[in-house]
Amino acid sequence: MSLILFAEQVLNGLQLGVMLFLMAAGLTLVFGVMGLINLAHGSLFMIGAFAAAAVAGATGSFLLALMAALAAAAAAGALVELVVIRRLYNRDHLDQVLATFALILIFSEGTRWVFGSFPLFLNIPDYLAGPVTLPGGIQYPFYRLTLILIGLAVALGLFLLISRTRLGIQIRAGENDREMIAALGINISGLYTIVFALGAALAGLAGALVGAIQSVQVGMGEPVLILAFVVIVIGGIGSIKGALIGSILVGLTDTLGGLLLPELFRQFMDSSAASSAGSALASMLIYILMAAVLIVRPTGLFGAKA
């Protein structure tokens, strides 16, 4: 195995990691501020991808497609928050799980109804297509590199939003004491809608960006959702920093595990057995990582003490 292949896989791992971060950031914000577990977050990812594919198909502009993804996911998020989610804040987690599971059924089948069962395709725009040569002679797809940069930029923007702006102060205050900030004259239900729509927009953006390198289809959101859960469990619920570090860890572990484990097994097994055993174990690797983190720190790397 060459060093270049390894470097490429590290970049792929980073790319998976930052896209997971876009999902996990919304989930962890919503949990941190509203105490809500939202299984339907994957549906918002899917809505973003479908909106982008539909708009790109109609106009041919990738930038417009991204805007449409952000707008559609944010609007769907705000609508869902106003109609359903808002009734769940005072319920126990079981009710939240079931209501959001019901939302998944409605969104998935509704999308199938509108767009049909066949996957849509979202093309990478010409100006982002093709490989670039990185220092060290590594050829890497320009689009994937752009994803990494967008993801990091969003992470930075989110940090600034939370730590430097008025909205960020309100969000942090809402995490600590919702009665108190309501008493201080802040419209708490408006704040909740904004936070939920913000998380939804991030998920929709991730869906549109990832939609261009895989097919856009019903059910694409849930595998990402579950990976984002693993990220949050590792990083600690409610922590944006934990979500970022957890995402990168999960992205790298998943990508490099698939590369290195079959290679490792080949040292003491015949080739076909090694690749099947290696890939089977690699598919479990992030969950093993999660279990290991849990044994050492049950509330995640950056989670508050329970």
């Binding site: 949990f31 577990i37 987690h93 799980v97 579950i226 859960f229 693993v230 949050i232 469990v233 619920i237 089977a280 598919s283 479990m284 969950y287 999660m290 849990l294 044994i295 049950p298 509330t299 995640g300 329970a306």
Partner: peptide
């Protein structure tokens, strides 16, 4: 070892682990 939302997410994740296996 955990409870609440963590428990929900972790059981979901372990189920998914066996699925991919």
């Amino acid at each position: 070892r955990t409870s609440g939302v963590y428990f929900i997410m972790i059981t979901l994740a372990f189920g998914q682990m066996l699925y991919f296996f």
